[in-house]
């Protein structure tokens, strides 16, 4: 039972880490606190569901549609909705509040569209729901694939950000937008790219989640919450931090659900969140704010 719980926890944690990476890019580099992030996840989940149910398309293939689509959607949302706010913002705090409120509106619009299209029912589909032997316990194959996908996608993003010039430029913007523009980085473009990249990761995460979890048109909010909590635990803009915090949260949730009560998972999340913020207000791996 413990091994099963830990394995499930790793699967869940891997997915969370993937989701949180996207959000940390959006908030850390583009400086947009995107409360509609979870809605993008759910849109992708419904996309995977629809393609699987109608065309029989495997969710792994759906990724090749969802990732570019998520990128394009993020690019578009930033251009239409965020850029005017960024331009008019006088202070970072002002932009923070404006972006929270605007994406909050977006949350309702997307959620409303999903409700109209798919209703409020719990949705899931059965993809590769066969048990596989891992370390002497049974685990569904779709979960293993989900974990593998999270590792591959997360690894690719981490590599791109830390080992390429392009990624270094993005990270420079996250550390200091002003200095970055002084060395010739187009901050506006970097912010837009980061936001779009976040959209792509959200879409990927949504497809991965749909492979092994039930979801509804209104469950985006919970994913946003969890991703935000992971981002804060890991330190804003910190990719490795998001990865480790995601795994911690996934494990903690699964262990509590297995050994204490499934109804208390959110309480666990919150407990961790508050405990960490009180102990280290800039996050587990955060830079000291000055």
């Amino acid at each position: 039972m413990l091994v099963t719980a830990i394995l499930s926890g790793l699967v869940l944690g891997g997915t969370y880490a993937l989701l949180a990476m996207g959000l940390t890019l959006q908030y850390g580099i583009a400086r947009i606190m995107n409360l509609a992030y979870g809605e993008l996840i759910i849109v992708a989940a419904f996309l995977a569901y629809t393609l699987f149910a109608t065309l029989g398309l495997s969710p792994v293939w759906t990724l090749f549609i969802a990732i570019p689509a998520g990128f394009a959607l993020g690019w578009g949302i930033y251009g239409v909705l965020m850029q005017p706010l960024v331009r008019r913002a006088r202070t970072p705090a002002g932009l923070e509040i404006d972006s929270i409120l605007a994406t909050f509106g977006l949350l309702f619009v997307i959620q409303g569209l999903l409700l109209v299209s798919f209703g409020a029912n719990f949705t899931s589909y059965s993809y590769l729901n066969v048990a596989v032997d891992v370390f002497g316990t049974k685990l569904a194959a779709n979960r293993l694939i989900a974990l593998a996908l999270a590792v591959v996608l997360g690894g690719a993003i981490y590599f791109a950000l830390t080992r390429t010039l392009w990624g270094t430029a993005l990270r420079a913007v996250s550390v200091s937008p002003v200095s970055a523009s002084l060395v010739g980085i187009d901050v506006d473009r970097a912010a837009r790219t980061a936001f779009a990249l976040g959209g792509a990761l959200a879409a990927a995460g949504g497809v991965v989640i749909s492979m092994y979890q039930t979801f509804t048109a209104t469950s985006g909010v919970v994913f946003t919450m969890k991703a935000l909590i992971i981002v804060i635990m890991g330190g804003v803009g910190n990719i490795l931090g998001a990865l480790s915090a995601g795994l911690v949260l996934g494990l903690a949730e699964t262990l509590v659900a297995t050994y204490v009560d499934p109804g208390l998972t959110l309480a666990t999340t919150y407990g961790l969140f508050i405990a960490i913020l009180l102990w280290r207000p800039t996050g587990l791996f955060g830079r000291a704010a000055r």
Partner: peptide, 20 residues
């Protein structure tokens, strides 16, 4: 009743943009 949340969201965005 069905489009309530879409309109709510649009009103919200409008207020943020037009009447900050």
């Amino acid at each position: 009743p069905n489009h309530y949340s879409i309109i709510l969201g649009l009103v919200f965005i409008t207020i943020v943009f037009v009447l900050p």
